[in-house]
């Protein structure tokens, strides 16, 4: 009778494994495997968390890169204007038109530098709530920077951090040349029709363009780093998931075979039990 009950319990357990798809649901099923499975689930959640961090940081980096590319384009346009202004054949009317064009580009540059993503302003350093650039007569080149020089870091793996963006201050300045100061000088030179001053500014714009390309490359390098780590984590996740599955998931083929074996033992035990119970001396009285 005990064996019949044992077989019945075993069958019900196997049925549960098939229905739930898991052979370990509680620590009492297999304490060591349960603990290992939970530790693997912890690692899995860690990887998923870091992947979410990467996705968030990457969105910031991609927005930053797009903005930096726009800035480079605007600087190239500015360089073209400076080149045209340096040509002494320009008339006063043309200089005025060029001045307006430069002012428009200056606005566009400020707009690009004030880009936002879900976490806030991307070039305001750690002060992501603050609008980083604003027109300000007291600011260098008439534009002040309101953010911080330090940038937010994001941890994307144990001990690995990325800086998804660059500081606005670092963008506007290179080797003592300030972007907005250069633009202000260009506007002044254009309004005065000073072609020689304009020609002298070409090198500054070249330096600014190269600097912005460098900044964009820095961001691109961070994106590559994120992509690499993301892929590595994806691969690790697959390994962990496979290990986890081997620990807790039901092996259907094996379980079905166990069900058949247990069913056979169950039926045999019942047959033997009923056959013994049927034998009685009462039949011979």
């Amino acid at each position: 009778m005990k064996h019949i009950n044992q077989n019945r319990m075993e069958l019900s357990k196997l049925q549960e494994h098939i229905a739930s798809g898991r052979k370990i649901t509680m620590a009492s099923d297999a304490p060591v495997n349960f603990k290992n499975a939970r530790a693997l689930e912890q690692q899995l959640r860690d990887k998923e968390f870091y992947q979410q961090q990467i996705n968030k940081a990457k969105t910031t980096s991609q927005t930053a890169q797009q903005s930096l590319d726009e800035i480079v384009d605007r600087l190239i346009e500015l360089k073209g204007i400076v080149l045209r202004g340096g040509n002494s054949a320009q008339g006063a009317q043309a200089y005025k038109a060029l001045t307006q064009e430069v002012e428009t580009i200056q606005e566009q540059l400020i707009n690009s530098l004030n880009s936002k993503d879900g976490s806030g302003y991307i070039f305001s350093g750690t002060s992501s709530d603050t609008v980083p650039f604003s027109m300000d007569e007291l600011g260098v080149g008439g534009v002040s920077f309101n953010g911080t020089n330090q940038v937010n870091k994001t941890q994307i793996e144990e001990g690995i951090f990325v800086e998804p963006s660059v500081s606005g201050q670092a963008i506007r300045e290179v080797g003592g040349i300030d972007m907005f100061e250069a633009i202000e000088q260009t506007i002044t030179a254009l309004s005065m029709g000073d072609s020689s001053s304009l020609s002298a500014q070409l090198d500054d714009y070249d330096s600014l363009i190269n600097h912005l390309i460098d900044q964009s490359a820095t961001v691109a390098f961070e994106i590559n780093k994120m992509d690499f780590v993301f892929e590595r984590q994806e691969s690790l996740k697959n390994t962990i998931q496979a290990e986890l599955s081997s620990l807790v998931d039901t092996d259907f083929a094996e379980t079905f075979s166990q069900i058949q074996q247990t069913e056979l033992a169950f039926q045999s035990a019942m047959t033997v039990h009923s056959s013994i119970m049927n034998q009685s001396l009462l039949d011979y009285l």
């Binding site: 968390f49 979410q52 961090q53 940081a57 750690t126 002060s127 992501s128 937010n152 994001t154 941890q155």
Partner: peptide, 8 residues
């Protein structure tokens, strides 16, 4: 998560 966007 907060560390990467402290003002969020």
């Amino acid at each position: 998560n907060l560390a990467s966007s402290p003002q969020s």
